[in-house]
Design a protein around this nucleic acid. Structure first.
Lengths: 337, 337
DNA sequence: TTGTATGCGTTATCAC
DNA sequence: GTGATAACGCATACAA
């Protein structure tokens, strides 16, 4: 077996209590004995077993972050914010659910069995009832994707307003037929972005045409079909708002294949500002989520909640930002709103 | 406090030992008592505290995976392979080091303090000596990036041969001046890829010209300067091999800005086959690493090592694949080698 | 300032 | 088939 606190105590000629004390520099220990113990610890290359410590203290200083995936999305940027806010007090453990409810449940076991003290759920598949039940017994928070009726600490951005701003921008630029690509899956962020689209149409005196809405899945390749759908209409929209950058990039890719020039023949705006959006050719105009801030804030609030013990189930909407790049018109001549 | 095994035992009118037995269905329990206990477990919504279990069993069934980052690289694809190979017996905990040695060391504490049973290190900053020391006391493995002199279980791909194939391809297509973009940082995969470049030149009767090598960092934006460097030469190379897709995409982006047509004026080949490489315009010719297989295999071998207790510090090179896309010539008229 | 003793929640060994 | 009970490694209340 490994070297334990007992071995250190024996070698140092003190009690385990004293060793424990120097480990946690909890109460006063004579400098000389402390020095001696530390020397032994180094000599024996002792490293405390946290299973014992955690069991005793009823805490692990681990935070679990469940993300659907880490490829081509906003999560890796959010994770950085989470990490920084948690460090150095807490370690952040990331796990991917691949959007499977079963996998997510299995990962949540780490919360139930005390492997972690808290969990941040991004794009959760859990329903409101389950979340509320969970929230009453464990420290959890949502990030990115809120859940309707869930009374759980949530940090996200104003998806409705983000979409509203993007679509209003197109309207103000003179486009009267504006398409939208959204998900068939009724994810709340998509629904919110659809609402923003609707409100922008209405506020700008544009009529709603259901043919201008294209429903599909999340994949980049779904953007191909979206482009074809719109461009093969009798009277194609000349501006399209996509509820995600990935779909927008899929459209752009397909447009290039068909010789359609994005930013000229067709204007496209995405949502998220994933790192890819500024790397692409052409660069993608998009609604930026404040990823780092979202990650940072959700952990800050969560830890606050854990230390104070005060209930806090607020939903915080962080401000988005419309980023003008080449896939859509510049913002010249428009006053800020 | 929470409901424990004791509470269940009391409520079920049996001993904690019996409850433990039904939990682990270790030894035979009367079906009727088992049924009863399970009912109580459900009623009390009991969930075993793994800190106790782990402490007792000296294992956590957790595997730590340390990655430099998850944005725009091969790691997210490798993680999927790791996850699948570990599941359902082990949980996979991912943590990002952002390539900081200090952070990596801090994360390795989870190994020392028994929060995890094993660790997979990707692109580690640790030196061979430290790794060997670690390997003698803990279950670790390297993936993606090997470390010279480190006698540790390693799964990666044949970087030298991958580069060799890419550069040979250019040579066979008639290019006699082939550039290379590599990292100033002496990372072993870069060094191996450079070696492959050299050997391909030599095997194809091409002379080495140090001016055709551009050294920079890892960032996508470093590709910009690389493009400028080559294109502003008196006699620019018409084919360039980049040791990473990200650098190749940076070059492509800058080329578009300058009106240089990649795949026509200039041929570019990357390395890695990150998901972005097939999404980009133009699509990137690249050397594909078998990411999923690498992740899957490293965990398989690691678990094998842990269960059998047999030492296994082999280095396994998985086969790469040259993927022909639009940023470089097609492979028409070339025989397979 | 330091040591002794107890308990955290669980599993495993031994009786019965 | 089941129940006591010791142990896992540690932190802490209490005694000294």
């Amino acid at each position: 077996m490994n070297v334990t606190i007992k071995d250190v105590a024996k070698a140092a000629g003190v009690s385990v209590a004293t060793v424990s004390r120097v480990l946690n520099n909890s109460s006063a220990v004579l400098p000389t004995t402390a020095e001696n113990v530390e020397k032994v610890i180094k000599d024996l290359d002792y490293s405390p077993n946290f299973l014992g410590r955690n069991l005793r203290k009823c805490e692990t200083k681990n935070i679990l972050v469940i993300v659907p995936s880490t490829d081509q999305n906003v999560y890796s940027q959010i994770i950085k914010g989470i990490q920084d806010a948690a460090s150095p007090e807490y370690d952040v453990l990331i796990s991917t659910s691949y959007s499977y409810l079963n996998t997510e449940m299995r990962l949540l076991n780490m919360l139930f069995n005390r492997t972690v003290d808290a969990a941040v759920l991004m794009g959760t598949q859990l329903d409101a009832e389950t979340l509320n039940e969970l929230n009453s017994r464990y420290s959890i928070a949502l990030c990115c994707e809120r859940v309707e009726q869930a009374n759980v600490l949530t940090v996200t951005c104003d998806n409705e307003k983000g979409a509203y701003d993007a679509v209003s921008f197109f309207a103000k630029k003179g486009f009267d037929r504006i398409g939208m690509v959204t998900t068939s899956n009724r994810v709340i962020s998509s629904v919110d972005r659809e609402k923003g689209y609707m409100r922008a149409l209405s506020d700008n005196g544009l009529s709603y045409d259901e043919k201008l809405i294209y429903h599909c899945s999340y994949e980049y390749t779904d953007g191909f079909a979206a482009l074809d759908y719109f461009w093969d209409m009798k009277n194609p929209p000349r501006a399209v708002f996509c509820i995600s950058d990935l779909l927008a990039i899929g459209m752009t890719k397909r447009a290039a294949e068909r010789g359609i020039e994005i930013g000229k023949d067709l204007q496209i705006c995405g949502f998220d500002n994933i790192s890819l959006s500024s790397m692409y050719i052409p660069e993608l105009t998009t609604v930026a989520q404040p990823c780092y801030e979202m990650g940072s804030l959700v952990v800050k609030k969560l830890l606050e909640k854990m230390t104070t013990g005060k209930e806090n189930n607020e939903t915080i909407l962080l401000p988005h930002r419309l980023i003008y790049r080449s896939s859509a018109p510049s913002d010249d001549g428009l006053t800020d709103n």
